[in-house]
Design a protein around this nucleic acid. Sequence first.
DNA 1: AATACGGGGTA
DNA 2: TACCCAGTATT
Length: 357
Amino acid sequence: MSDKTLENFDTNAFQQSLLEWYQSNKRDLPWRKDQDPYKVWVSEIMLQQTKVDTVIPYFQRFITKYPTLNDLADADQQEVLKTWEGLGYYSRARNLQNAVREVVTEYGGEVPSNPKELGSLKGVGPYTKGAILSIAFNQPEPAVDGNVMRVLSRVLKIDDDIAQPKTKKKFEQIVSKLISVEDPSSFNQGIMELGALVCTPKSPMCMLCPVQEYCRAFADGVEEDLPNKSKAKKQKTKPYVALLIRNQNDQFVIEKRSENGLLAYMWQFPMVPVDEIGLEHIENWFQMEYGINITLGKKQGKLKHVFSHIIWQLDIYEAVTNNILADDDRLILVDRKEMDQYPFPVSHQKMMKYFDR
DNA sequence: AATACGGGGTA
DNA sequence: TACCCAGTATT
């Protein structure tokens, strides 16, 4: 690379200041107890787009339940999803288990330590690959996440749009030259830790920053203007009627979602897209779609649920059915007590309060 | 290169 | 509200 970004930049001094700061300021996190590649892997998957404080209890429960790679490989998928319930991006859990099973069958149960094989595993992209290689195997590979791009866009005063894929590639090139070969694990974790604790998105604490003297954005007083990130377009709202359907045995109808797309393999209360169907056609539509007769009851409440790319507006209705068995493959009838066995998205967990009274 | 994919926390 | 978060897969 013939880029001039690192000209006149004291890489060595930057490394030393960062590593020293990290040694004395790193948080005591559960996945930092050892370098077990499996645990590093689990933590890195959970931490994708998810805050440390959110991950901690999930990581503890997950590792208690699946202490080794083989335990996870042998587990039931629905049970794994139940353990992941509430953490979001559920394809992470399914991909992780699929990849772990591949490690068992293809690599003798040992997490591969070379970039090619590791990066070919489901759910292991450029960031996670670099994180595992550096943290678990001490290899000088870049692990560029949002923190790294923020910190380095400020330190090196780079104003490329960090929302664009090519910008991330640029930062990977830079980190390849910047990374400490002696301690790549601490370097990568240190720069992320700095982004999480000091070089924060808003109001960075430059006065506490160990690399302030090397920071070009601080020198020019533009640290608040970086990184440059284009805005995501805002979500569209999709209205549904969500149905709490009960039969005469006090069982509820729940539905397993499709194996593709949003919330795949998760369970929910049946939902009717009312912008397409219309409130007055719900009973007929339900008979047509699922082969079950229902009688719509009263509206119990409403719920707004915000995803990254869409907003659900749920009107919650009670309904009754005279069915003892559910006809459709997607539907089952369960007692209230059995319902907790199934993984539900948060939006539908919230709906349960409408009959828990 | 753009979009789908969760959910919670913050100012 | 708007934005952010230890991103990846798919198109």
